[in-house]
Computed example of a mutant assay.
Amino acid sequence: MTLSHRNYRAAIVGTGGIATAHARAIAASGGRATLVAVADVDLGRAKTFAETWDVPGAHASLTDLLREEQVDLVHLCTPPQLHAPQALEILEAGATALIEKPPTLSLAEFDTLIEAEGRSAGHVATVLQHRFGTGAVRLRRLQEAGELGRPLLATCATQWYRDEAYYAVPWRGTWESEGGGPTMGHGIHQFDLLFSVLGPWREVTAVAARQARDVDTEDVSMALVTFESGAVATIVNSVVSPRQTSQLRFDYEHATVEVDHLYGYTDDDWTITPAPGHEGVSGLWAQGHSTETSGHDGWLSAVLDALDQGQAPPVTAADARRTMEFIAALYASAFTGERVRSGQITADSPFAPTMEGTGAPWEKVRNK
């Protein structure tokens, strides 16, 4: 029996740079979703965006949009400090909130969204599109089939470069408006993909530093992570690295699997190196080679598939919470010097209401 697809009425809130990726994904959905309205605090910018994408409705606020339009999905492309209150407003209207990363400024804020989702006909999902590229899907499939053996070791590096002009945007580089540095806003894509492959993390030991940028948050962080499976990993997040790269390497019993890209990968960015005696995994990896780039198109397709089946869209609240808890644990370890276990950041932890927690060490030095 063929599953019939419905058409979802979609809206975009925030018409800055990333909104274009969302509009393209909606346009590429083959009629499964239709962009019917946009909103921006700059109504002129909203109208220009609407004209570009042939959208009938343009509004000056999310409140106006929800009052005047019937929508199923709202894509939140606004600055991070607006994500939680706007997602709550969307859920209260019975629509599904699709939130750009980071979904909230803190773990406590995210838990508020989970509670609201339980009262709503809608869902909440985070845009972490690299989980849905064909290489990541193939890797998880081969791992689950046992073709690669046990995962032993992984390395994950997001080493990007963001100059002072980048941080001249008022909401960047502060705990109050961005929630954190490259751990929150940049590396989250890569280590979320790592978690989607290796599963639940168990404990983290980390450092964070402000090396070069005049910001409140870190500009570099590093973590040693142990997983429930027994695998171990290193995670590096940086915005001070002139040679930019996004790299993941997974060492299994039977093969090493790697991807090296920047903001999106194709199958050509992945390599597999079989262990002696396991050369057959190379043939398995080569099956179904694709030229598609990991991005919003594949993510939105997965969202619509889930909704068609009456399921919560990926990345679900539970999935995203695991990643957000890791971020809180990384900061807690870095700022206290202690190893932090999964489940340790409870509601009464100073790192639950804010990722800054007990305070960044460099701020304590500055304030002496």
Rank of each mutant, 00 (worst) to 15 (best):
W160V: 05
W160Y: 13
W160R: 14
Y161F: 15
R162G: 00
R162L: 13
D163R: 03
E164S: 09
E164P: 01
A165Q: 03
Y166P: 04
Y166S: 00
Y167M: 04
A168M: 11
A168V: 07
V169Y: 13
V169Q: 10
P170L: 05
P170K: 07
P170R: 06
P170H: 09
W171R: 01
W171H: 11
R172L: 13
R172A: 03
R172M: 02
R172E: 00
G173V: 14
G173E: 01
T174Y: 02
T174Q: 10
T174F: 12
W175T: 09
W175L: 14
W175H: 06
E176S: 15
S177L: 13
S177H: 11
S177W: 09
G179E: 04
G179V: 03
G180E: 05
G181T: 06
G181A: 03
P182G: 09
T183P: 01
G185H: 01
G185A: 07
G185R: 04
H186S: 08
H186Y: 14
H186L: 09
H186A: 09
H186E: 14
H189Y: 15
Q190C: 10
Q190V: 11
Q190D: 12
F191Q: 04
F191T: 11
F191Y: 15
F191E: 03
L193I: 01
L193P: 02
L193A: 13
L193F: 13
L193Q: 13
L194S: 15
L194N: 15
F195E: 03
S196D: 06
S196N: 06
S196C: 11
S196H: 14
V197C: 04
V197W: 06
V197Y: 04
L198P: 10
L198H: 10
G199F: 05
G199P: 05
G199M: 08
P200A: 12
W201T: 10
W201M: 11
R202H: 12
R202N: 11
R202E: 11
E203G: 08
E203D: 12
V204T: 13
V204S: 02
V204E: 12
T205G: 02
T205K: 12
A206W: 14
A206F: 10
V207S: 15
A208N: 04
A208Y: 04
A208G: 09
A208L: 07
A209R: 06
A209I: 00
A209W: 04
A209H: 01
A212P: 01
A212M: 06
R213A: 03
R213S: 03
R213M: 05
V215T: 11
D216M: 04
T217I: 07
T217S: 00
